[in-house]
Design a protein around this nucleic acid. Sequence first.
DNA 1: TGCATAAACGAACGTTCGTTATATTATGTG
DNA 2: CACATAATATAACGAACGTTCGTTTATGCA
Lengths: 206, 206
Amino acid sequence: MTKGADTRDRIIREAESLAGSLGLDGLTIGVLAGALDLSKSGLFAHFGSREGLQLAVLQRAADRFDTDVLFPGLRAKSGESRLRALCDQWLAWERTRGAHGGDLLAAAAFELDDRPGLVRDYLVHVQQRWLATLVTACTIAIEHGHFRVDVDPDVFVREALGIVLAHRVARRLLGDALADARADAALEALFARARAAAKPKKKRAA
Amino acid sequence: MTKGADTRDRIIREAESLAGSLGLDGLTIGVLAGALDLSKSGLFAHFGSREGLQLAVLQRAADRFDTDVLFPGLRAKSGESRLRALCDQWLAWERTRGAHGGDLLAAAAFELDDRPGLVRDYLVHVQQRWLATLVTACTIAIEHGHFRVDVDPDVFVREALGIVLAHRVARRLLGDALADARADAALEALFARARAAAKPKKKRAA
DNA sequence: TGCATAAACGAACGTTCGTTATATTATGTG
DNA sequence: CACATAATATAACGAACGTTCGTTTATGCA
């Protein structure tokens, strides 16, 4: 009972890493089995189909996202600080690369956006849930008076999404060494913009 | 002489469309040949290798990008309006979907960011050139006094990139019907923020 | 220790992959 | 029209794909 679950775990972990660089669709049973010194059929039996494997990998990534990003973020006290914690963790997660291959969820978002199926459906669900969480957090920040009332939570969250995605391109594709710092700065600027002006500092022109 | 170039053209056009939904890596010679009623080998002869095909497709996409986005944008008079035209065309290009399958370049940016090779190298070059163009346009907008001097062109361009990428996710993955309008609004807000305050309107708090 | 069951294996299935020869058909030029 | 060359097709290659099957090895409980 426990043995099977153990290998299943090992498989998914390795699969997540492989899918990080080859994409969910580039992930192949033969290669995965080879990397783990397992037989194709032995590995296959754990999932019943390739789609089952992909689904399991995505599910694991989503779980890990909750553990590393969502839950830690939710521990911050509600309002701006929680929203900030969520976004910071998000960026930190996005940065993570190597051991576990980058942000599988973001990559899958671009990979699967035109390919119907269970895998895509699940991904959509996951992403929607996450964005909804952020929208809620942002709304609360407004209610608490941390953010101006004319801030649109949907717009805010979409900007955050843009920062994360742009960061990935800058870092992984373009190899921009300053990508991390720039993303942090962009996030800070986004928050500063939304903040209720506590001390109405004069706006500087030119 | 002209016949071969013709079919090569037909091939690349279809390939671009296919790669738009299946990804550059999902694009397969057999399927492509089937879609065009060609033999695999006959098609193959035009490119010499799969990588050659992928490269040709990417090159075509880049050319089309120049035609549809870069050149029209450059026709606007330099400064803010040119930068704006470039960004507007960019978004419009990103929106394009169906006939030619979405934004292949953006998809490839996520697909290939971890896979070394000629295709990736070329993609990096293309993307860097485009972003550099935008940075230049933004710099000029500052010099012309359209934008405030404290605007960082790199930051500005990265925000624009974020808007485009987030728009794609919202539209194609999440199916957000308001994605287009929201992206337009985000872009307008970005420009408004960078604009030199002509009439120093009082900043409103809460 | 015995025994049911779970877990992994090896081999093979039919397809499809990219690629390579070799042949056939179009094309354009002398 | 003849002929060189360009364009496409046919056939086959070895490798890898996802999947199935029957068998063997390991595990955990009586």
